[in-house]
């Protein structure tokens, strides 16, 4: 009897605690913080882009809603680069993209929509997981951040930067060492991905490459002049070596001519198909009777010359026309 009573008490305490804890410990945000709320603009698994209320101590009003095109955002996000040492045998530094290509596509599209919908007292937070360079091969890594537009500039504040996907290393070690493949390595409930904060700096140790229009007021905070950066990217894109530019112009001209030729061919084929259809209508077709055998043979010959009918089709059709004599 005692055992059943104990079991009942355990179940009751556990249930009551789980239901009541939010009320008992409101300041600890044990059962959810403001980041759990908000309007989801995009979500895929643990990745998301959300519109959330601004942090309580955040100063200034955001310039939301704001329209920034997806292409412009794609250019600006792609222009954020990291500066890295060239390697063991090289003094030169090299630059590598900060965001993975999938991150850029996701963020450009999601942020563009989010900025259009957000209010002045709202920020956009995001978590994206892309494939980045690892020690041996590419690894899935997390970038968490907060975005808002203030004074006409795009602000990005980062939390997690290149965190390995999933739970803590200790959690993964325990799951693997205990043989608990059924446990979820990507369980981040007790170790959630961190988005950036205006109020607290998350030290980012990476060195961002200089770019005209990009400022870095804090290690985890980038301020981006979108129009300026986008125009530079556009110019860079167009600024090609003369030989390459000539080659590109020639290729563009050829492509245009090819497109024109293709369109003509399509129209010609459509016309011929129509004629073929009319011809294949045989004696039942009105038009078949109006064309002479000679004209029909001539049309057939043209089709053959242009390679639009095979030898076998040509012979069969020719015989059909001759049978009409």
């Amino acid at each position: 009897m005692t055992r059943y009573l104990l079991t009942f008490i355990l179940l009751l305490v556990s249930t009551v605690f789980q239901v009541q804890a939010r009320d008992w410990f409101p300041d600890l945000n044990i059962f959810g913080s403001s980041e759990d709320e908000g309007v989801v603009v995009w979500q895929a698994g643990q990745q998301y882009i959300k519109i959330v209320p601004k942090e309580s101590k955040a100063e200034g009003k955001n310039d939301h809603p704001k329209t920034i095109s997806v292409d412009k955002l794609r250019d600006v996000l792609g222009a954020i680069k990291l500066q890295e040492a060239g390697g063991i045998f090289s003094d030169e530094t090299k630059e590598s993209p900060f965001f993975a290509s999938s991150d850029i596509s996701t963020l450009a599209s999601g942020l563009s929509r989010a900025f259009e919908r957000a209010k002045p007292d709202e920020d956009i937070i995001f978590v994206v997981i892309g494939r980045h360079k690892g020690l041996l091969a590419k690894e899935r890594k997390v970038i968490g951040g907060r975005a808002f537009i203030q004074d006409g500039k795009l602000n990005l504040i980062f939390g997690d930067v290149y965190r390995p996907e999933g739970g803590s290393i200790d959690q993964k070690k325990r799951n693997m060492a205990a043989g608990c493949g059924g446990c979820d390595d990507n369980d981040v409930r007790t170790n959630p991905y961190v988005v950036g904060s205006r109020n607290k700096e998350h030290t980012v140790k990476f060195v961002f490459a200089d770019f005209d229009g990009l400022e870095r007021p804090r290690s985890d905070w980038l301020v981006l002049d979108v129009d300026r950066m986008a125009s530079i990217v556009e110019k860079e894109r167009n600024k090609l070596p003369p030989a390459l530019a000539r080659e590109q112009a020639r290729a563009r001209k050829e492509a245009a001519e090819l497109n024109l030729e293709r369109r003509r061919l399509r129209e010609e084929m459509a016309r011929m198909r129509k004629e073929m259809k009319e011809m294949s209508g045989g004696n039942n077709s009105k038009n078949a009777g109006t064309k002479s055998v000679e004209e029909r043979l001539s049309t057939l010959d043209q089709l053959k010359k242009k390679g639009l009918v095979s030898e076998k089709e040509y012979q069969r059709k020719r015989q059909e026309i001759l049978n009409d004599l």
């Binding site: 410990f25 600890l28 945000n29 044990i30 409930r189 007790t190 170790n191 959630p192």
Partner: peptide, 11 residues
Amino acid sequence: GTSFAGGSLNL
């Protein structure tokens, strides 16, 4: 499972 400022809770 959840996290809060400076810690986490698992039941």
